[in-house]
């Protein structure tokens, strides 16, 4: 009985988190279109509902009812597996993200503000987020199209060059909090914004993290895998209908995920920036910070043009990697000196 109740609670939690994340994904596309169009002196979607508010739902319905085409020369199994291989890692990472501070108690049942708090949280997310690249590579390969293959290859190269600095930039917060658990990491940043790791580790690892995160999620200015002006749509050129929407969902879910990790690792998670602001619920702080990072993503997309591919690689290997290595060294030495 006890076990059944706990299982039910966990299932409900998972369903709730998935629901909220997917809703956010849907409306992130809307927000992106609106913010982009405002920055370009346009109006964006205006037709469906007041100010186009129902546009994501209309888009979803349209994609759902579209014909699902598998190209003649495609490898059917890999072609249909790769959208799932992209989407699942993007959604699975949310399992360890702590959204708030306090657990909700209903009778004996405790509802935590995270699905699970495993003690290798960050490692888990890093591992799964790199799995997403397999889906992209395989999808590009299985499509039997030169554009898709080029997109997939670019994605693989990009992931290799940006995975390393991404992991190394997160070493700073891990060293300071002495934990890989997202919950412990958030608790270690309590007290005010000067305790957040964006200040404590100098902003350099945070900037490296943001750049790498953008590259990881294939967003502008690093959207070379799907560069529409060169590669049609890159790795998902041949996809249509539901499979296409899976890639789309994965991209936006990944955006939210990396923003969540950025907030937890560098911006203090659900901590308020000042002690006197703690009356505002932690979840509000968490969401505000995530929304800010998401806005920054969109903002950057409206501003910066796409990089050339060799520039992208050179920037990753010649600047980001050495810089993040140096920062790891500096942070660990500083930590050693300060504790001894």
């Amino acid at each position: 009985m006890e076990l059944a109740a706990q299982l039910l609670v966990i299932l409900i939690q998972i369903a709730a988190v998935m629901g909220v994340v997917l809703l956010h994904v849907a409306y992130l596309t809307y927000a992106e279109r609106k913010v982009l169009s405002d920055m370009q002196d346009r109006l964006g979607p205006m037709e469906v509902g007041p100010h186009g508010l129902l546009q994501p739902i209309a888009d979803g319905l349209k994609l759902f009812f579209k014909e699902d085409i598998i190209p003649a020369g495609a490898n059917k199994i890999i072609f249909s597996a790769s959208p799932i291989l992209v989407l699942v890692p993007a959604l699975i990472g949310f399992a360890v993200v702590p959204f708030g501070r306090d657990s909700l108690h209903i009778g004996d049942v405790e509802i935590t503000p995270y699905i699970t708090d495993i003690n290798i949280g960050i490692l888990y997310i890093l591992a799964f987020s790199s799995l997403g690249a397999y889906g992209i590579l395989l999808g590009g390969w299985a499509s039997n199209s030169k554009y898709a293959l080029l997109g997939g290859l670019r994605s693989a190269a990009q992931v290799i060059s940006y995975e390393l600095p991404l992991g190394l930039s997160l070493v700073g917060p891990i060293l300071l909090s002495e934990s890989l658990s997202m919950m412990t990491m958030t608790h270690a940043q309590a007290g005010g914004f000067w305790n957040w790791y964006v200040v404590k580790t100098t902003p350099i690892p945070f900037v490296i993290y943001m750049i790498c995160a953008i590259a990881e999620t294939n967003r502008l200015p690093f959207d070379l895998p799907e560069a529409e002006s060169e590669l049609v749509a890159g790795f998902f050129t041949e996809y249509s209908g539901m499979r296409f929407s899976f890639f789309f969902l994965a991209e936006y879910a990944n955006m939210i995920l990396v923003s969540c990790i950025g907030v937890v690792a560098f911006l203090g998670g659900w901590q308020a920036p000042f002690a006197f602001l703690e009356f505002i619920p932690p979840i509000v702080w968490f969401l505000a910070k995530v929304y800010f990072l998401l806005f920054f993503y969109i903002w950057l997309r409206a501003t910066v043009p796409r990089l050339r591919f060799d520039q992208l690689m050179a920037f990753g290997w010649k600047i980001m990697l050495p810089l993040s290595l140096v920062m790891v060294l500096v942070i660990s030495v500083a930590k050693y000196i300060l504790t001894h």
């Binding site: 913010v35 169009s37 405002d38 920055m39 370009q40 002196d41 346009r42 109006l43 205006m46 903002w299 950057l300 409206a302 501003t303 910066v304």
Partner: peptide, 22 residues
């Protein structure tokens, strides 16, 4: 350079000027 660009796009966001005709 990127910060300058960001500043420009943000200015346009705040201006709220619309060229599109519905």
């Amino acid at each position: 350079e990127i910060l300058k660009g960001l500043q420009l796009t943000f200015k346009h966001l705040l201006k709220g000027k619309v060229i599109t005709q519905q």
